[in-house]
Amino acid sequence: MSQDLLNKVNEQLNAKFPGAIEASELSYDFPVFTIKKENIHDVLSFLKNDTELNFHFLTDLTGFQTADEKQLAAIYHLHNMPKNFRVRVKVFMPIDKPEVPTATDIWPGANWMERETYDFFGIRFKGHPNLKRILNVDEMDIFPMRKEYPLEDQTRDDKSDKMFGR
């Protein structure tokens, strides 16, 4: 079923937004789509409002940093409850200009999820009504989930992690 869904969404998106899909694959039971940053808002809103696909529910929105520390990603998990379709949509952006349009106008529930993603990864969601830190203190000047801030290592030199750990 997941393979069918992958093909179906691929077909629909290709017809509507030619060239917007950078990659699509099946990861375990989830069809995963990587969408170009320019198209992400239109694609999300199409996926929500299309009567056949009808991904009306935003399950989750979170951030991600690639291993080379040059790119950030926003990851959306969408759900069509009546047909039980689930897809994952990713959008990558360079780390020195982490900007992506907000999804709060499509799903009001994206509000805090985007704030959390901004708080931890520094992804700026353009058009968000109140984009400020949510879980960390307001005075914090770093984005702590980025890989450039490893746990413990900055101050400790008594513990070598060469053998174990990344």
Partner: peptide, 25 residues
């Protein structure tokens, strides 16, 4: 949401916490 790069720890782990999401309403 778990991303593994094959190492001993997750590369990224995100908890979808239901009450964080609905408390905003």
């Amino acid at each position: 949401y778990l991303v593994s790069d094959g190492g001993r720890t997750p590369f990224r782990l995100h908890f979808r916490r239901p009450c964080f999401i609905y408390y905003q309403a």
